[in-house]
Amino acid sequence: MKLLRHTSPDPQQLALQLDFFSSDFSSQPKIDHPAPKHSPGSSLPPSAPPSTDVAKPVPTGKRRVHVGEHTLDYTLVRSKRRSIGFMIDDDGLRITAPKWVTLTEIENAICEKQRWIFTKLNERRERSARRLQPQMEWRDGGTLPYLGSDITLRILATQSAGILYNATSKELSACLPLDAAEQQLKDRVQGWLQLEAKRVFAERLPIYAEKLGVSYQSFALSSAMTQWGSCTADGKIRLNWRLIHFALPLIDYVIAHELSHLREMNHSPQFWATVQSVFPEFAAAKKALRDHAPETLPIF
């Protein structure tokens, strides 16, 4: 998710949005590395031959390099850019480099950035593994996340309607007719979660507004598929109801983030200093939220 800044002729429509996997929550982490400088008349060092691994063929369109005890495959894209760019996506490591930079220099840069590369590759693998985990089962005894913990779903076969949460046993009991369809259960649970989200957000927003010394005009729930929250210049806050699945610190981080835009309508160093002033653990919360792929949440 990029942190997007949207502008229009009407300054009241200026909004900053906190997206899933932006530069703060990115599904495609990337960094730049300064390219070696060569004058037009200088000679370039010879290109290193591609590393090979006899145990496993190099995938088509990729190069291979040995970094310490690790074998790393990567995609190389030549461009007119001035620096060497590293990006991690679903296909692994992709490097974009100027046409005049040699393979030796590129692989030296890989060695210099190996800690970042392997950290991001591991994060990507862990996220992919979580996506492959089975989705929750909509049945009696099924579990779903609520405020950072799993709660157990109980189905009471009755003609009466209603839903009740027992905080002691961490059980959410839904009353449904015997012939109720699965979607009826999903609708009942989603409605309860949205009411809880509205209640929790209404409690937390004034706390951080007071800490920041700002006033917001209104807040509403969002069902956006790509954004955790947004803030307009005239103080309208929108928060994704799915945040109710997460622990309170992650909810507080998003709230502090959005309200901080009422002091800094940008993502400058001053903005992040503002967030940190009321939420010192923002970096850890930002990473934790980024690591929760939407695919791991219940599907309604």
Rank of each mutant, 00 (worst) to 15 (best):
M1F: 09
P9W: 12
D10S: 10
P11V: 04
L14T: 12
F20E: 03
S22A: 13
S23G: 14
F25H: 10
F25P: 00
F25E: 08
S26Y: 10
S26M: 07
P29C: 09
D32S: 15
P36L: 13
K37A: 13
H38F: 15
S43D: 14
P46I: 07
P46F: 05
P50H: 08
S51G: 15
D53S: 12
A55G: 13
A55E: 13
T60C: 07
K62N: 04
K62Y: 14
R63W: 09
R63V: 02
R63G: 01
R64G: 01
H66Q: 15
V67W: 08
E69C: 04
Y74Q: 06
Y74K: 08
Y74N: 11
L76C: 08
L76H: 12
S79C: 07
G85A: 12
D89C: 13
D90C: 02
G92C: 08
R94K: 13
A97Y: 07
K99T: 08
W100G: 10
W100Q: 14
E105Q: 15
I106V: 15
E107V: 03
E112K: 14
E112P: 04
Q114M: 08
I117R: 05
I117S: 09
T119N: 07
L121M: 12
N122K: 11
N122V: 06
E123K: 10
E123R: 11
R125F: 10
E126D: 09
R131C: 13
L132W: 02
Q133P: 00
P134A: 06
P134I: 08
M136H: 05
E137I: 02
E137G: 02
E137V: 10
G142T: 01
T143V: 11
T143R: 14
P145R: 02
G148H: 00
T152D: 00
L153P: 03
R154K: 14
I155G: 03
Q159A: 09
I163W: 06
L164M: 09
T168P: 00
T168D: 11
S169K: 10
K170I: 00
L176D: 00
P177S: 14
L178W: 10
L178S: 15
D179P: 00
A180C: 12
Q184S: 11
Q184M: 11
K186V: 03
V189T: 01
Q190K: 12
G191A: 11
G191R: 04
W192D: 03
L195R: 14
K198P: 00
V200M: 02
F201C: 05
L205M: 14
P206F: 10
A209D: 08
V214W: 02
S215Q: 12
S218K: 11
S218M: 06
F219D: 03
A220Y: 07
S223C: 03
A224E: 07
G229I: 03
S230C: 12
C231E: 06
G235D: 05
K236C: 10
K236L: 05
I237M: 14
R238V: 01
R238G: 07
L239F: 10
L243Q: 05
I244M: 03
P249S: 04
I255W: 01
I255V: 15
L259R: 03
L259Y: 01
S260R: 08
L262R: 06
F271I: 12
V275R: 06
F279T: 02
F279D: 04
F279K: 14
P280I: 03
F282N: 04
F282Y: 15
A284Y: 02
A285P: 06
K287M: 07
D291S: 10
H292W: 02
P294T: 01
E295A: 15
L297E: 01
P298F: 00
